[in-house]
Amino acid sequence: MAAAADQDNQERETALINVIIAARNEEAYIGACLESLLGQSDDAGAVETILAANACTDRTVEVARAYSDRFAARGWTLNIVEVPEPGKVNALNAADQLAAGRALVFLDADVRLDPDLLAQLRDVLMTDRPLYATGRLQVAPARSWVTRQYARLWVQLPFVKGGAVGAGLFALNRAGRDRWAEFPAIISDDTFVRLQFTPGERIEVTARYHWPMVEGFANLVRVRRRQDDGVREIQRLYPEIMDREAKAPVTGADLIGLLLKMPVPFAVYALVHVAVRLRRSRDGWDRGR
């Protein structure tokens, strides 16, 4: 009995985590992202990072390669794959096919992690029960006034405060990843993945990750429009998973309370909301930088 428990503990400690980063022209951000991975606590265990650089025209690959020796010094691997075809989904699928880990962490290239995040994800995902996990989302400080005001309101919305948002970072164990084949060619991959799981299968650990919002009014409108299009696309293509959303609705009382509490952020958020509906979206995925 004790020997079996020791074996289980050893397997749990050594099981591989794959961190998958889909990156296109992230020269300015990828260094800080990789630094935050290297800063993870030793309890993170065995880690292989797979960076899928898709159709990059800047120094993303060169900057990332400079970190290879430091990953190796920790006994970790940084595997850089150059994907010639543009598109985030192409990059995700290319990296995902190489991943053999028991847990998979899908990370945006402009996100930074608190030191205990990978260890906490390991703790909850090393099970045969299909699970989705993420950290506690912290919006990174914005440079522009309009993004700061928008973010102040956004983090107070019920569905954000409810947790397990997964914007910029989500993680799955192998049993959870087996619920679908390749990533489909859709706008909102993170929403598609989250809705493969019921609310009871989605976990938010306490460690934070730092996720930047796009800067400026025009970029906020463009990205918000694409997000809305992405949700409508999933509603059209995969209606059977929509009942798993379970987001807390924004009620009239919520809106009045937010307006009274923070009138300026409310006005900025409302202006973005109105602008989103005035014009059709462009085709394609857009981070908005």
Rank of each mutant, 00 (worst) to 15 (best):
R277A: 09
S281N: 12
A66D: 03
V19M: 07
G288M: 07
Q196K: 15
D108V: 14
Q149I: 01
I80H: 02
A267W: 06
V124C: 10
E48Y: 04
E85P: 14
A248T: 13
D283H: 11
R65F: 01
A22Y: 14
D243S: 14
A140Q: 07
G31M: 00
P263T: 08
V274T: 04
V193D: 13
L107A: 07
M262R: 08
R226G: 15
M126P: 02
T251F: 04
I241Q: 11
A100M: 08
P263Y: 02
F71K: 00
I20M: 13
L220G: 13
R236K: 10
T198P: 07
A142V: 10
A175T: 12
A253R: 15
V83T: 00
M242S: 07
Y238M: 11
V214W: 03
R236G: 06
G230H: 00
V250W: 03
R24H: 03
D283C: 05
A119K: 00
R12M: 05
G101S: 11
Q196H: 15
I256M: 13
R129W: 03
A175C: 05
L271M: 15
A4K: 10
P184C: 11
V276G: 05
A103T: 09
R102N: 00
L260V: 13
Q156H: 11
L131W: 07
L260E: 00
A32L: 05
A133C: 02
V193G: 09
E85G: 03
L220N: 13
F197T: 11
R224N: 12
F217K: 14
D114T: 04
M1I: 04
D178T: 10
S281Q: 07
R224V: 13
L16T: 02
A5S: 12
A72Y: 01
A181H: 08
R12Y: 03
S281W: 00
L104W: 07
A4S: 11
G135W: 02
D110P: 13
V264H: 09
A246F: 12
A66V: 01
G200E: 14
R112A: 05
A142P: 15
G216H: 06
A133V: 00
D243I: 06
G31P: 04
E62S: 14
I17W: 00
D283T: 08
L104M: 07
Y29N: 12
L37F: 14
A167Y: 11
R277I: 05
V146S: 14
L16F: 01
A46N: 15
A4N: 10
Q227I: 10
N173D: 02
G257C: 02
R122I: 01
F266M: 08
L271Q: 12
P239Y: 06
G87E: 06
R12D: 02
R225K: 12
V231K: 12
I203C: 10
T60A: 03
L37H: 05
G166F: 01
I21G: 02
L16A: 00
I256P: 04
E82L: 09
K247V: 10
H273C: 07
G166K: 12
